[in-house]
Design a protein around this nucleic acid. Sequence first.
DNA 1: CAAGATTGAGGCTTCAATCTTC
DNA 2: GAAGATTGAAGCCTCAATCTTG
Lengths: 149, 149
Amino acid sequence: MTAKKLTDAEIGAWAGTIRAVRAALENVEAALKARGLPPLAWYDVLIELRREPAGRRRLSDIGERVLLSRSNVTRLIDRLETQGLVTREACADDARGAFAVITPKGRSLMRRMWPVYHDTLRACFLDHLDERETARLAELMRRIVAANR
Amino acid sequence: MTAKKLTDAEIGAWAGTIRAVRAALENVEAALKARGLPPLAWYDVLIELRREPAGRRRLSDIGERVLLSRSNVTRLIDRLETQGLVTREACADDARGAFAVITPKGRSLMRRMWPVYHDTLRACFLDHLDERETARLAELMRRIVAANR
DNA sequence: CAAGATTGAGGCTTCAATCTTC
DNA sequence: GAAGATTGAAGCCTCAATCTTG
């Protein structure tokens, strides 16, 4: 029978990371809402579309790439489509598939959301790390993500 | 007009941290579910009750302390109460308030959940950091959390 | 009026079932 | 049969309104 104990540093690393991410995300969501802007999850989808030269991506791709809410992509795209931020396009090679394509209105929304996202993320997270810590944190988290595949 | 750019390291630190936390949490939830155990949020509440000598805490306290889902505590406690994991108790000093009290069944559930939580957390997160990295990560995240108050 | 807690409504997520196409 | 996507049902979260007590 093993003890299954964690050290104080381990508890601090895990609980602290969760709390820090949550606090930053909550502040970003609050800042967006205060300006009448939609949730961060919308930005998260739109940016993945905008990364592509054609401004579009398969729905199945989106679910894998997105940072938040791996949830039902179909209905998330439904909501963006209702707002005119994306359109759906049939897929030529694979008739099962569908593309989501970012619209000019979608690109315009991103330009309004970015400053809010950027400023809040700096104030609530990035500004509290120096350059070396930022680089180390990135390396370390990349390692963990890579191990979880 | 400012550029509002982030460095690659900053993007990596932020996106990487979110992805790492999400991956670890998803793996923990999956491991619990695979063994027929309830979601981590339940453990998260129970442990806050068990920390107290009397095994109880005011509902308003719980919302502030819990790691995940700061959401509607009333209904979360409702679910735990339905399963016999906690009971509600009136508050003597303040008739507005209510306590949630962990039951023996609640303590027993925690003992079954902990090994799964522990092992998965190690495998998906903690084992990929050495001792120095763990300590630094804890310190750094503590700093960010403290700044967000 | 403020704080602690509960409730109803609406929105989002999750899960399983389904449909089409590969 | 497997993969991409959609749908219905059920559960959970969020928000505002409410009730009670300080």
